[in-house]
């Protein structure tokens, strides 16, 4: 499909669909990064600490790619992040869950499930009809490959010895996170428009099927029991519709604390106008 549409070419229907698509992308990345940074200085080794910090930085960069495009519709940064009602965020519940204390298996399983889905989703945006997304998606895809390699390299070490404590912890994390990962593919109200208008070239159902085809055999190859998707109920809050676990609202309070309480509504400018 030819990318011809820019922000000024969209009618209400098109704009609504692009916004829904961008908010889901940006919110997922922002909240995932917010959780990853909790591991700073606590990861099991210096290398793993740096690697996860780097992944978090990438995800924040990607969140900004997509929030930037929302700003082209007239939103300012506070509308998108610092002053946005937390009940309007549409990230998957997978990325908002707190980690079980000290549970490195959780972050590794979470990252594997998330980044595998993320890769499929970005690939389905390469042929988007919305030119600003097409311009940016290749850069994000190139930066994401490392995330999956990192997760798989750790998974293979942690789960390599069935019966060991680390294998059991990976299994427990998988059991806990898998239902939440399914919410990645829950549609929003404008999902049909997103696909019909060519903003994403695959349906969420197709992306979920591909995700199953990659993730399930891989996890089973590590002697892990993957919950049967047919028999796995979605969690009560699914995230995509603005319903979230209590942990999200606490996290939101935490990361907006400085903005709210310290009277720093604008970033400090180091030089140039307004400095």
């Amino acid at each position: 499909m030819t990318s011809t549409l820019g922000p000024d070419d969209l009618g209400d229907r098109e704009r609504g669909a692009v916004e829904e698509l961008l908010f889901r992308l940006a919110d997922d990345e922002f909240v995932a990064a917010e959780r990853y940074t909790e591991w700073q200085i606590y990861a099991p080794s210096l290398e793993s600490d740096l690697a996860l910090a780097n992944i978090a930085q990438d995800e924040l960069g990607h969140a900004r790619l997509w929030y930037d495009l929302l700003q082209e519709f007239g939103y300012a940064e506070p509308d998108l992040v610092w002053e946005r009602d937390p009940a309007e965020w549409t990230h998957s519940t997978l990325v908002e869950l707190p980690f079980e204390e000290g549970d490195w298996a959780d972050v590794i399983v979470r990252s594997y499930l998330y980044d595998t889905a993320e890769h499929l989703r970005l690939e389905a945006l390469v042929g988007t009809s919305y030119a600003p997304i097409a311009d940016r998606v290749g850069k994000a895809i190139a930066e994401e490959n490392y995330h999956r390699e990192h997760a798989q390299s750790w998974l293979e070490r942690l789960a390599g010895d069935p019966g060991s404590e680390s294998h059991e912890r990976v299994q427990a994390a998988l059991d806990r996170l898998f239902p939440h990962a399914l919410t990645l593919f829950e549609p929003g109200p404008r999902e049909d428009d997103v696909v019909d208008l060519g903003f994403r070239t695959e349906t969420l159902d197709d992306l979920r099927t591909e995700w199953f085809e990659i993730a399930i055999p891989y996890l089973e190859s590590l002697d892990l029991d993957v919950p049967d998707p047919e028999e796995t109920a979605l969690p009560e809050p699914v995230g995509r519709d603005g319903t979230h676990t209590d942990a999200w609202f606490e996290l939101y309070e935490e990361f907006t604390h400085t903005y709210e309480d310290l009277g720093r509504p604008e970033p400090i400018r180091l030089r140039g106008e307004g400095a």
Binding site: H62, R64, E143
Partner: peptide, 17 residues
Amino acid sequence: TYTGCPAREMLLNDVRC
């Protein structure tokens, strides 16, 4: 050079000036 560049605002401002 990459999307998470922490010097983004500084660079954009320097280039604009």
